[in-house]
Structures are given as C-alpha cells and as structure tokens.
C-alpha cells in the first residue's frame, strides 16, 4: 500500500511540527540513545497511524506515543536485567539530572518528593507547556480527570514548598531569593 500524496504531505506537516519538541520531550526523560530509538518509533507510529491522529492535537498525541514507548523501553531493559518486576517496585530513575539549570534546590526537592504521576503532570504542564486538554491526550485521561489531577499536583507541590520554607533558616534557602536572581 502506497500512501497518496495528500497523506504524505500530512505526515511531512506533522513531522515538521513535532520533530523538535519530541526530541525535547524524550531527552527530558531518557538517555540520548533511548531518546533516539524512541523518536524513530514515534515517527513510525505517526506514519502508520496517520488516520488516528487528531487534527488539532498532533503533538500531544505524539507525546502520548512517546510516553508509552519509553515505558516499553524501560520495561524491556528491566526484563533484560532479569529483574523481577513488582507492582510496587522502585520507580525507574530519570536520566535527566534535575539539578541542571540555574538551580532551585527547594523546588527540585519538592518535585522529587511527589509521586511519579504528579511529577509527570507538572512536567507536562511546565516543561511541555501543555494545558489540561492536551495533558489528557498524552496520558489517556478525560479532560476532567486531567484538570483535577493537575490541580491536585500543583497543590501538593505548593504544600511541599511551604513545608520546606517553614524549616529553620540555614537548612533550606528562602524561596524568594532565587526568583529574583533569575530576573
């Protein structure tokens, strides 16, 4: 089966739109090699499933495919190491070091203290700059569920931050100082 010209155009269009943001998405969450493998796989999925891609949400749709691809890779790697996988096993560690950038140890610590799903929702929100409707597409949730989960995750993060702020000075830095520094 050969794709007609308009479908090839659509693929090219989607590929141009998603190619760079997808690399960012993958490199935030995986090693370079895994990200490259996953990028190929996501593009192949786009090619195979052009008909299934929502017109206005191609990028979140691709993030969703990328998310599952990375999950499969991790599972494969874990199996390869003959680890017995259990439901409540340790979360897989991220390859991206959160301590890069200008540094915001309070926020990093608060983010790390959240559970994986909260952390991922917040990353999709702040790093991929997605709105709940798009987060819903990535995570296979209803828009209502995504809205609710984002709001809960933000609340939990804010609670963690204020808990840290209430610790004695000298142990943790005060939140405001770094924000000014970034200006």
């Amino acid at each position: 089966m050969v794709r007609p010209a308009d479908e090839i155009n659509r693929f090219e269009q989607i590929a141009s739109e998603v190619f760079e943001p997808l690399q960012r998405y993958l490199l935030r969450r995986a090693s370079r090699q895994d990200a490259e493998d996953a990028l190929s796989e996501v593009l192949l999925t786009v090619w195979r499933r052009l008909e299934d891609i929502p017109q206005d949400r191609a990028l979140p749709w691709c993030y969703g495919v990328a998310r599952r691809t990375l999950a499969n890779q991790r599972r494969g790697q874990r199996r390869g190491l003959r680890l017995v996988e259990k439901l409540h096993s340790e979360p897989i560690r991220h390859h991206v070091d959160l301590s890069v950038g200008d540094g915001d140890p309070d926020l990093e610590a608060a983010l790390q203290s959240l559970d994986g799903a909260d952390r991922e929702i917040l990353r999709l929100w702040a790093w991929e700059q997605l709105e709940p409707r798009e987060i819903a597409t990535v995570m296979g949730l209803t828009v209502n569920a995504a809205t609710l989960r984002l709001s809960r995750a933000r609340k939990r993060l804010a609670e963690q931050l204020s808990r840290q702020d209430s610790r004695p000075a000298g142990h943790k830095r005060v939140k405001g100082t770094k924000e000014h520094r970034d200006e």
Partner: peptide
Amino acid sequence: SDDLRDRLARLDPM
C-alpha cells in the same frame, strides 16, 4: 500558579 509554572519551567533541562 503561573509563578509556580514559570519557576518549574526554569528547571527544564531541555
């Protein structure tokens, strides 16, 4: 909330 989003965005390694 937007402050929080901006602050988180500054942690973005990519």
